[in-house]
């Protein structure tokens, strides 16, 4: 029960952060996340070798090439940054690789990585467990002081942990290590995916108005016009 409460309160916390996220523009994100500490991505980090082929480096972040106006973070190297605790990772949920090793982080909430569905490689200090537990990753190995979580598993296919049945009109999709989300099927939208298609408002109102005018005037001519004012 208590676990439930903590989970839900943490969840709420994450939601607030996510909402906050929306209002944070990319400049702030750059400043807060990519300039978290001095310097840039270390050359011996796996993020560096990843970024050379896939994008360009800016501060501690790796951005995706040839994206027109939106900066998409695809890699993040915060290793050796003297971070003691991580609350959230702003809008780096598009990242494929994140390095948090060599930091004095004491514990790390699973909810930090909620929504990080692209994440395939995560480097953590060795005393921390992989988010979502061992079962959420293809391979987990410890190299000296670094724990490497590799190959995120799809939470929707893990029937062992919890039988995941999304409600009607929605489909389960991965939502970060150990997380899933129920997104509406094609054509469905709105609260609980209950609505389908767009109501032809103008058409319906137009037809109804026109027929009301016609019927009213016909009836007026045949009926009320004959009213005798006595």
């Amino acid at each position: 029960m208590t676990a439930n409460v903590t989970v839900s309160s943490m969840y709420l916390f994450t939601v607030l952060l996510l909402l906050f996220n929306v209002y944070v523009n990319s400049q702030d994100t750059d400043a807060q996340l990519c300039q978290m500490c001095e310097g840039t991505i270390r050359h011996d980090s796996p993020v560096w070798s990843f970024c050379i082929t896939k994008g360009y480096v800016k501060g501690h972040c790796c951005f995706k090439n040839n994206t027109s106006d939106v900066d998409t973070i695809i890699g993040l190297d915060l290793s050796n940054c003297s971070i003691s605790h991580v609350e959230h990772l702003y809008n780096s949920s598009t990242a494929l690789i994140i390095d948090l090793s060599n930091n004095p982080i004491s514990n790390l909430s699973d909810y930090v990585f909620q929504g990080f569905s692209q994440l395939t490689q995560l480097l953590l200090p060795s005393k921390l467990e992989c988010p979502g537990g061992r079962a959420s990753w293809e391979k987990v190995e410890v190299k000296s002081i670094t724990r490497i979580c590799e190959g995120q598993k799809n939470a929707c296919n893990q029937t062992v942990q919890m039988p995941l049945v999304c409600p009607e009109n929605s489909l389960c999709s991965p939502y970060g290590p150990g997380f899933f989300e129920c997104s509406c099927l094609n054509n469905f939208h709105g609260y609980k995916c209950m609505r389908q298609g767009e109501f032809p408002l103008v058409k319906v109102l137009g037809i109804l108005t026109a027929s009301t005018v016609v019927v009213s005037s016909v009836l007026w001519f045949t009926q009320r016009r004959k009213v005798k004012n006595t």
């Binding site: 319906v204 109102l205 109804l208 009301t212 019927v215 009213s216 007026w220 009926q223 009320r224 009213v227």
Partner: peptide
Amino acid sequence: VVQFAGGVVVFFGLL
């Protein structure tokens, strides 16, 4: 809306 239209028609057409 249909009911409202009915009210309008009644107003203009009913004896």
